[in-house]
Design a binder for these strands. Structure first.
Lengths: 189, 189, 189, 189
DNA sequence: AATGAATGAGAATTCATTCAT
DNA sequence: CATGAATGAATTCTCATTCAT
């Protein structure tokens, strides 16, 4: 009996996953204004199924945001152990910028997390923010980032780079812009 | 008869202007998703009039982009005479950033000009780009901006700062971010 | 020019009238749950037209309610001049009951007016209520209706008869029920 | 094996009962438009279970009607032994009216029984109708109700009072309306 | 040329009903 | 039998665009 129950749930979870996967793709391609119907089509499910799992279009979108952030935060955390915190920070930024360049609406996600702190579901982006804060602190302590730069402006810069990346297909250019920003973060010799 | 025709055209031109004015306001307030009906209402004209002058909502939006750019470029050009090109560049950026923070969809305008060069009506943003290019060249020559920084990445940075500004109500924070970028543009001592 | 303007309005008014007419029919046949699409179809207009004239389904429904009440109230008012107020009252009730028996949702309209006084748009049903109140007063004064019966209970009885009529296709039966009620309103000899 | 089957049936019957109980409550609160899902939730069963026992929402609704009627009829029957049949009839009406005022969709139940005789499952409301008929006959014989009043119009009046009661929160008013009706049923002195 | 009414293709959301587990 | 996930038709409402006046 418990197996049967688990089986049902596994099925539902699989469908939920398919919906999320489809939503991820669709939102990456068309942005947040993509229709729920399109998501359902891509997922190969009825539209009712989408709404069963996510009672609102916004709920679905938020789920994608959370998902993206979780992944990003997960991948970011190991960086805190880095011996070169400034370099780690830059690597992290580069990764996020590339993702923003590829996936529509990812930049918006970053902007929300970076800037509209209270708006987002609380604690959703906290993990990423914390990682960045840790790296920043370490870098300042190590003297590889200027002491007079705060987390807030770093987040603004990150958001800006991500948002600009959405319109910047050339990776070299994105890298150059990032270089300028990090040059600005580096203490004058 | 010719007078009548001229009169009509003057009328039409005035209407076109009113529509643009209204669109500017409405898009600044509500972003590009504002309805065309709302624009017509604000302009005090029928919706048919809006579509007569701009056959598509997108055409109207582009017209606003062009308009904003023209104004900005106009105000920017005098700066090319500045004795301190780097300082002038920074002032210009600050002005644009503040505008982006205040007017919705202005940041997108900047992004279009800065990044999707070919997408926009050709030569639309060229004037502004040229001004920035001139300032940048002068600053590099004067040694107040690093020689290895190109126009393209500067435009990316400008777009990024404007886009981030849209979500950053605190002017101090916007200023701080700008400072970092300009520190990054300054040649190492 | 004024003629042109008037012409447009006349056209719109005609369409509005067609929508109202269709809505009247459709609601009479299917009740208040009939779809707006069906109303549009019957009116021979696009669904957008219906929503242009009545921004909400509820607004459309209310318009029908108001319309029905206005007509009824208009027809009722002359009765106040009757030499036989009790008889006039009974005639009025009979008319309303018959309408309720024929038109779905009319009974609900009557119920709203009779009972949920404040809920309905204020003053919508007031005219009818006033007419009934006048007739009732006159009848009580004339001694043809019991002095201890108030307007409130008369309205309850009217609503009840209308609501029951909706399910009572036999007119003789409706008439019999009305007779009992009026016998109850008549003072004991 | 037979025991197991019996056990299953007992389980099923219990579930059926729980569904009915929940439906009773839900329909009383929200009317017939309440969703089947809500009924299932209240019953603490899956929605599939609801549809297993009642193949259609309408079937479920009818079952509730039947159920309410059975109870009412059961409670009513003892009244036939009353020495004062007219008084008993009035008591019965008062009880039904109060129930209609409290429980949404009960008035509709009454209307169905009173008026759409053939529509309902045959013989469903017959018991109540029979009780009322018996009381009416007795009262007519006793001379406490007019001889020229038939069962049909009494049912119409009952339905009307119940339907009106649904919108009449004031019990005094409901009582007053009932008084008028019974005055109308009483033979002229 | 201006007007604004008409249009109808979506979009989000709900819910009765079916069916795989 | 029970479960509840899946389905998709239906509904309300919006908005860019067209067209009669």
């Amino acid at each position: 009996m418990s197996t049967r129950v688990v089986a049902v749930r596994a099925d539902a979870r699989r469908n939920r996953e398919r919906v999320l996967e489809a939503a991820e793709t669709v939102f990456a391609e068309q942005g947040a204004t993509a229709s729920t119907e399109e998501v359902a089509r891509r997922a190969g499910v009825g539209i009712g199924t989408v709404f069963r799992h996510f009672p609102t279009k916004e709920a679905l979108y938020e789920a994608i945001v959370v998902r993206r952030l979780s992944r990003v935060a997960e991948q970011a955390q190991p960086l805190t152990a880095s011996a070169d915190p400034a370099g780690a920070l830059r690597d992290l930024f580069a990764r996020l910028i590339d993702e923003a360049a590829t996936k529509k609406a990812f930049a918006d996600t970053m902007a929300v997390v970076s800037l509209d702190v209270k708006a987002a579901a609380p604690a959703v982006g906290d993990q990423l923010r914390d990682t960045i804060a840790t790296l920043l602190d370490a870098a300042r302590t190590a003297g590889t980032v200027r002491a007079d730069v705060g987390l807030a402006e770093v987040m603004v810069l990150l958001a800006g780079l991500c948002l600009a990346a959405e319109h910047t297909p050339d990776p070299t250019l994105r890298e150059s812009a990032l270089s300028v920003v990090f040059a600005g973060l580096t203490p004058p010799s």
